[in-house]
Design a protein around this nucleic acid. Structure first.
Length: 720
DNA sequence: TACTATTTAATTTTT
DNA sequence: TTAAATAGTA
């Protein structure tokens, strides 16, 4: 057996991990240390060298993208397809199990997956039904509560109210929510995991079967596992399964979503014989960047401890820029991007990172003005768009009449005369008879409802039944195509004025082509339509996937995890923004922010800029802020301060205050000796000036108020 | 039922 | 500031 292809190109630590004996192994993999590579090579090693069947491996990731990449790379390394190798996300694998064993899991065969948006709607409806005040019981908080419990593996019956009426109500709502889901055959994301866990826990034979099958469990991003995911893995491993987990405690940034770094320590307790391998050699960044990252993260107390190093060059120092305000910050970033592009670099190699999405706005305005193409990560994904969800709701209702979430979504969309009163009547009927909305609609239409409403409801029932009949036997693509037309959705959006309606229709047509290229699994018992619906829920598709144009990348530091760029800007590095105000007081929260900063720094391969604004407009108010404490944690020797060039007695552009395009005719000359008028300070004479653009400041000698330095962009001076 | 005024709140996000 | 949700009006 020639093991060269699997082992060459690996460093000692990587090789140690890849060739580790068949025992529990924990790999602590620093940023850029070849984490995925180790996982991929481990799988190839087990199959190719240890001679294991691909069937006996289970590989788990958090995102579909990571799963697809891992599969591709393993197949590339082995030089053969490994169809029977189970690689997927926790949710994807759980889903697979539940589809296979729906009976044991106490689910209807055609259960539907609901996303966070559906879940929230369901909760809102539940509150309405129970006539509970949704300002006192905020739907979002209830949703958070329910998901948090499920993430911990807790059912309502496991929870005690602890004498707290607030909590008692929450638990009651959790229970009511569960009833609705169970009745409608609806499964939310957390439920997938919880059910899959219970499925094994309560079915010794099943568990035994899977334990026998999966001897090796490969887990990516282990620091991001939540309690139920860990429990699921632990259960599957039993005493015989061999977990090989890879993670980085310093990159744990999803605690608020239930992720627990502690699982790394727990792992060592649960598997005392585990081999621990640390990957500290970094292949991404310059030594300067790594040193800075190491120094920052060293301020955290709870960590396993590791130090990134590189054989590569020292690299350039980290540039820090103190801007006057967010506008100036954006101007600075854009000027640097201009340089970068003008030097023949690829725009897509540059990324501007920020802590919160709202910060992209100023940058976007600037980039548009400068004519630099960019792409903002995040935002609505394809299958999350309203019109797509509408179409899917029709399909779901056709496939599963008791799906109340879908029913409510489209019962009056397009408007067909089924108003709030009628829907309300159906709800109360459904509640009183504990049946679905669909049944309620049928019952009410035949007796209780008034003529007009009854007709409308009958027409709706008829519409769904007719569509169900008409699409029977059609291909998936034809089914989708038929439904978007027959439902009236296309006509509905046609009437919507402006570009919006057009885009919606384009998206609906795109849904048809998504259905065309969808390949159902022939082994699956589900109908292709149900399979497609599950796929849509489980894989929301690309975000703003602007064609393949070469664009500057804008994203939050969270979404930058796992990516790398030659040129990186960390913007908005101010206390209150980053670390975020809401995390500052809590030590654990602060440590998580610091890990996020560590993630941000380690995205940069060559050049890193850190920028902050001394004054920032937040929620319409100007705030003064201090540079982020994380900047102070970077040793001075790795940093270089960039100061604005000081230019005196040059005619300058008057800054444009208003947003949007550059103001034409804004080229007012400001010269020494120029008389000006200020709203508060009155008349005066310009004595001195410095800086450029939004930076520019002038010294004015006011007749009554004395001499003052003013930032031109804020002073709003009138020339006299 | 659709449009408009008013109120309210404002991290991070994959599945 | 602004975006979304709600309440009120035509």
């Amino acid at each position: 057996m020639d093991v060269t292809p699997i082992l060459e190109s690996l460093n000692d630590a990587q090789r140690q991990a890849v060739t580790a004996p068949a025992e529990p192994t924990l790999v602590i993999a620093g940023a850029g240390s070849g984490k995925t590579r180790v996982l991929v090579h481990r799988a190839a090693w087990l199959i190719d060298v240890e001679g294991l069947s691909p069937q006996s491996l289970l590989a788990v990731t958090f995102t579909n993208k990571a799963a697809a990449e891992m599969r591709g790379r393993i197949e590339g390394l082995l030089g053969m397809p490994v169809g029977h190798l189970w690689i997927g996300t926790f949710h994807g694998l759980a889903h697979r199990l539940l589809r296979r064993h729906w009976r044991e899991a106490n689910l209807p065969q055609n259960f539907q997956i609901i996303d966070a948006d559906d879940q929230l709607r369901l909760i809102k409806r539940l509150l309405k039904n129970l006539e509970i005040d949704d300002s006192r019981w905020v739907p979002r908080e209830i949703q958070y509560f329910i998901n948090a419990q499920k993430d911990e593996g807790l059912r309502p019956r496991h929870l005690a109210d602890e004498g707290d009426p607030n909590r008692r109500q929450m638990i009651a709502l959790y229970e009511a929510y569960e009833d609705i889901c169970q009745r409608g055959g609806l499964v939310d994301f957390a439920e997938l995991l919880l059910r899959a866990h219970e499925l094994w826990r309560d079915n010794a034979e099943l568990l035994d079967h899977y334990r026998r099958r999966f001897q090796h469990l490969l887990v990516d991003e282990f620091q991001d596992t939540n309690a139920i995911q860990y429990a699921w893995l632990r259960l599957l491993a039993g005493d015989t399964g061999i977990p090989f987990v890879v993670g980085d405690d310093d990159q744990s940034i999803y605690r608020w979503r239930g992720a627990r770094v502690e699982h790394i320590y727990r792992f060592q307790k649960d598997f005392p014989a585990a081999t621990v391998v640390k990957l500290e050699q970094n292949y991404r960044s310059t030594a300067t960047i790594l040193n800075a990252a190491n120094a920052v993260i060293a301020n955290n107390n709870s960590r396993m401890g590791k130090n990134l190093w590189t054989e590569g060059p020292e690299g350039e120092s980290i540039k820090v820029y103190a801007a006057y305000n967010e506008r100036d910050e954006s101007d600075f970033v854009i000027a640097r991007l201009r340089d970068w592009i003008d030097h023949g670099n690829v725009r897509a190699d540059a990324a501007v990172l920020y802590r919160s999405n709202a910060q992209s706005r100023v940058l976007e305005e600037g980039l548009i003005n400068a004519g630099i193409p960019y792409r903002v990560y995040g935002g609505l994904r394809f299958f999350e768009r309203a019109e797509i969800k509408d179409a899917l709701a029709y399909l779901r209702l056709i496939s599963h009449r008791d799906d109340d979430a879908s029913f409510e979504r489209i019962v009056n969309k397009p408007t067909r005369g089924i108003g709030a009163r009628t829907v309300e009547a159906m709800r109360s009927y459904a509640r009183a008879n504990s049946c679905s909305m669909w049944r309620a609609a049928g019952a009410l239409a035949s007796d209780e409802l008034a003529g007009r409403a009854a007709n409308a409801v009958l027409a709706f029932i008829n519409l769904i039944e007719t569509m169900a009949r008409d699409i029977d036997g059609l291909s998936l693509q034809e089914q989708v195509d038929h439904v978007i037309h027959a439902s009236g959705l296309i006509d509905f959006f046609k009437k919507e004025k402006g570009e919006k309606g057009e885009t919606r229709i384009e998206n609906l047509l795109e849904l048809v082509s998504a259905a065309r290229s969808f390949e159902p699994d022939p082994l699956e018992e589900m109908s292709p339509l149900d399979e497609f619906l599950s796929h849509a829920a489980l894989e929301a598709g690309e975000g703003q996937a602007e064609a393949w144009e070469d664009c500057v990348q804008l994203m939050t530091m969270h979404s930058a995890k796992g990516l790398e760029f030659p040129l990186v800007f960390l913007s908005g590095m101010e206390d209150g923004l980053f670390p975020h105000q809401r995390s500052i007081a809590d030590p654990d929260g602060l440590e998580e922010e610091r890990r996020l900063c560590y993630v941000g720094i380690t995205r940069a391969k060559q050049t890193l800029y850190v920028t902050y604004a001394e004054q920032r407009r937040l929620h319409g108010m100007d705030n003064f802020s201090q540079p982020s404490r994380f900047i102070a944690e970077i040793p001075d020797e790795y940093m270089e301060e960039i100061r604005p060039r000081v230019l005196v007695t040059r005619p300058m552009r008057s800054p444009s205050r208003s947003s949007g395009s550059t103001q034409p005719g804004a080229e007012l000359g400001i010269r020494l000796g120029q008389r000006v008028r200020h709203g508060k300070f009155g008349d005066g004479v310009i004595l001195n000036c410095e800086g450029q653009g939004a930076h520019a400041r002038v010294e004015v000698n006011f007749e009554t108020a004395g001499t003052k330095w003013l930032v031109l962009s804020y002073a709003n001076l009138d020339l006299m």
